[in-house]
Write a protein that binds this DNA or RNA. Structure first.
Lengths: 235, 235
DNA sequence: ATTATTAATTGTAAAATAAACAACAAAAAG
DNA sequence: CTTTTTGTTGTTTATTTTACAATTAATAAT
């Protein structure tokens, strides 16, 4: 039942870039495409948008179907609409990126699905324009993480400050002074110190911290660096 | 010739939020929708994506068809994909935002087209989810302008520092100290002082400035505030 | 011609923030 | 008990940001 009867209709897809952190480096999740063309080649998790679902619903559904991941941080990135991006038939694709705690789903991913993690610095050739999507996602995650505390989504519920620092250093490909880093993150008021220690990484052990969820939401938007007195802004 | 033969096809639209600045307040451009449903009601500039054009091409074409605007700053904002956003038939729409010098096109817009400028603080009811799109565009322009010098796109080729300040103050809905503001913008190295003055706004007259295009592109990406030593980053 | 008015231009001191820098503590291994 | 390894903490300096007001240039008014 086409009401706008004269208009062309298009194929619409969703592709998901899933970031994970294993304590050493930032990785993304890839699968081998299960159908022609490019069957067997590495690909992002993608699929077509159905008639009765929103883009957000489609991205969640596709991610779950292909990896089992559910209820994770998922955010729309960009829509890729070049006419020849899919050589078979024109398809517009909206890319989403996800941030997950890599260990939380490790077993599930390798047992039930055939997804594999690849370090960002060593990504195989990807189908179509998926390489562009990954690049855009890398830029976005850096951009956003420079202003908002989203990287906590990549860590387990309990984490240590050295772990957090390694994460930041690997996302931004830099090194940060230990003293200044911990001063800085503790000053945000986002962390709650636990009495328990993580003994895995060192002899002495490092204290676990948890996110203060309340402050997390409250401070998520505090970022306008260029503008003086951001508190006086009517947002 | 449908190669992915089993898949549903969708209507795809593009909607453009055009921002302009008249020296006093930030405004957006609206038109009265020319066809049913909602004919005659205020709407963003929108249209359907054709088979043989990319999204970027579609947004440029639609903007030109409906307003005559060509070659302006246009950037993809977000894709709105709720199933019921268009009550007639499901349509996914990718929103773009544009920044233009309002005076440059003032006559053209009112003579040849029936577009009208509305101050951001006084926008009429809009069709469909266009209000959401405008809100998202406002957030994006603030976000981006806090980090990148995009607001210059809203000004004429020659502008004065007081004009620039009013623009920033109106985008961020705040007030800024004159001395600190001019120190700050001049320190960016983005401005070239001209010998000519603008006598319109005051008796004394304010010097015109121009953008230093080279520095503009070079410094556009300099923003990573959270991260120390951004120069050492491998981008 | 003098004075009044208006908006543009410019500098400095104080405060806040960020950067540089190293010693000590805790626990395990030997 | 000594060594080794990694976690934790503080101070000084430099840089950046903020707060704050007098002067200048031009026109308008008398």
């Amino acid at each position: 039942m086409h009401k706008y009867s004269k208009q062309t209709r298009h194929l619409l897809a969703v592709d998901c870039i899933v970031f994970g952190f294993d304590g050493e480096s930032l990785k993304i999740l890839l699968i081998q495409r299960g159908f022609q063309p490019e069957k067997g080649n590495w690909s992002l998790m993608g699929g077509f948008v159905q008639q009765n679902e929103s883009l957000d619903q489609a991205s969640n559904r596709i991610l779950k179907e292909l990896t089992g991941l559910d209820g994770v941080y998922l955010e729309q990135l960009h829509t890729f609409g070049d006419t020849s991006r899919d050589p078979i038939e024109r398809t517009i694709s909206t890319a989403y990126f996800a941030l997950i705690d890599i260990h939380k789903y490790e077993k599930q991913l390798s047992d039930d699905y055939h997804a594999e993690w690849f370090p960002l610095k060593n990504i195989p050739g990807l189908i179509f324009d998926h390489q562009d999507m990954v690049e855009a996602a890398k830029r976005r995650i850096r951009y956003k993480a420079a202003l908002h505390p989203i990287l906590f989504e990549l860590l387990p519920d309990k984490f240590t400050i050295p772990q957090l620092q390694i994460l930041y250093e690997s996302v931004f490909n830099t090194t940060i002074d230990k003293r200044n880093f911990s001063k800085r993150v503790l000053a945000t008021g986002l962390l709650i110190k636990l009495s328990e220690k993580d003994k895995a990484g060192s002899k002495r052990g490092a204290y676990y911290y948890q996110l203060n969820k309340q402050n997390y939401y409250a401070k998520f938007q505090a970022f306008l660096n260029f503008i003086p007195n951001p508190d006086t802004l009517l947002l």
